[in-house]
C-alpha cells in the first residue's frame, strides 16, 4: 500500500492528528500504574499516600462486608448469566421463525429495555416490587399470597429479575444474527434424512451457535461481575444486595478511603481475569468452530 509521502509537511500534521490519543494514552498508562500502586497505600485524599504494603489486603480478608459483596456478586453472576442466555436463545429461536412486521416489532420491543437508563428502569421496578405494586396485585388477583420482593431474603433475587428482564434482549439480538448465519442447506439435508425439529435444534442449531454462546457467556459474566446501577437503585436492606463495585464506590467516593478501594478493585479485576481464563480454558470441551 502506498502512503502519503511528503515528510516535511506531514510531521507537524501527524503530531496534530495524534495529539488527542497521545494525551489519552498518557492518562491511561499513568492511571493504570497509579491504580496498581495505590492499593498498597493508605490514602484519604487529604494527607499524602503512605506505603503500607499488603495491609489493605489483610483488612479486606477480615472484612465481612467485602465477603457479603463477593457472595452477592457471585449469586448475580450464577443466576443472571444462565437465565439471560437461556431466555435470549429461546426468544431468538422463536423470533427467527416469525416474518415481516411481527418480526420487526418483536425485535424492537425485546431489545428496547437495553437502551433505557438503568436508573429509570430501577425506579420503575422498585414501584413494581412495592408491597402494593404490580407483582403483588397480580399475585393477589390469582389468589396467591403477596411476596415481600424487597425484603432481606428476596431483594437480591429481585435485582436478578430486573437484570434478566433488561438484558435478555441484547442476547437475543446477537443470537438472531448467529441463527441467520447458519446455512439453510444443513436443515434441508437433515429434513431429507428425516430429522425432526428437536433433533435439528440439538444437532445443528445448538452446535453452530456455540461460538456465539461462548462470546455471550464471557461478555455477560464480565458485565454481571460489575453490577452497580441496579443495586444502587434497589439498595436492599443491611447489605443484602451490596455488590463489589458498589462497595468500591462507597469506600472510594463516600468515605474517600482511596487505598482500600484501589485494593478492592485489584481483587475485582483478579476475579474477572480468573473467571475469563477458566472460561477460555473450558471452551475446547464444548465450543465447535467447525462442523
Amino acid at each position: 500500500m502506498s502512503q502519503i509521502k511528503s515528510p516535511k509537511a506531514t510531521v507537524i500534521w501527524i503530531l496534530v492528528f495524534l495529539f488527542p490519543p497521545t494525551i489519552g494514552l498518557g492518562l491511561v498508562y499513568y492511571s493504570a500504574v497509579q491504580g496498581l500502586t495505590m492499593g498498597f497505600t493508605n490514602w484519604n485524599m487529604i494527607s499524602s499516600p503512605k506505603w503500607i504494603g499488603f495491609k489493605n489486603f489483610g483488612q479486606i480478608w477480615n472484612d465481612y462486608r467485602f465477603w457479603a459483596s463477593v457472595s452477592n456478586t457471585l449469586v448475580i453472576v450464577l443466576v443472571t448469566v444462565p437465565a439471560q442466555i437461556g431466555l435470549g436463545l429461546l426468544a431468538a429461536v422463536l423470533v427467527h421463525r416469525t416474518k415481516g412486521k411481527t418480526s420487526t416489532i418483536l425485535r424492537f420491543v425485546y431489545f428496547y429495555p437495553t437502551t433505557c437508563s438503568v436508573v429509570a428502569l430501577g425506579l420503575m421496578w422498585l414501584f413494581i416490587y412495592d408491597a402494593g405494586g404490580l407483582l403483588n396485585q397480580g399475585l393477589e388477583f390469582v389468589g396467591l399470597e403477596s411476596v415481600r420482593w424487597l425484603g432481606y431474603g428476596n431483594a437480591l433475587l429481585s435485582v436478578c429479575i430486573l437484570i434478566i428482564w433488561t438484558g435478555f434482549g441484547y442476547i437475543s439480538l446477537i443470537y438472531v444474527a448467529g441463527l441467520a448465519a447458519i446455512p439453510e442447506q444443513y436443515y434441508e439435508a437433515a429434513h431429507l434424512d428425516g430429522a425432526n425439529s428437536w433433533q435439528q435444534f440439538f444437532n445443528i442449531t445448538l452446535p453452530m451457535l456455540t461460538p456465539t454462546t461462548f462470546f455471550l457467556i464471557i461478555v455477560t459474566t464480565i458485565g454481571a461481575m460489575q453490577t452497580f446501577g441496579q443495586v444502587y437503585i434497589i439498595n436492599g436492606r443491611a447489605d443484602s444486595t451490596l455488590t463489589i463495585v458498589q462497595y468500591i464506590y462507597e469506600k472510594a467516593f463516600t468515605q474517600f478511603n482511596m487505598g482500600y478501594a484501589a485494593a478492592l478493585s485489584w481483587i475485582l479485576i483478579s476475579f474477572i481475569l480468573i473467571l475469563t481464563v477458566i472460561q477460555v480454558r473450558l471452551q475446547r470441551y464444548w465450543v465447535s468452530y467447525d462442523i
Partner: peptide, 30 residues
C-alpha cells in the same frame, strides 16, 4: 500516513483495551 513507529503506536493504543476500567476509576478521579 506512513511514519516511523506507526506499528508500535498502534499496538500501544490497542493494549489499552486490555486495561479494565475499574482500575482507572480512582486514578482518573484524582
Amino acid at each position: 500516513v506512513s511514519f516511523k513507529g506507526r506499528a508500535l503506536y498502534l499496538s500501544i493504543v490497542i493494549l489499552t483495551m486490555m486495561i479494565p476500567p475499574a482500575v482507572l476509576l480512582i486514578p482518573f478521579y484524582t
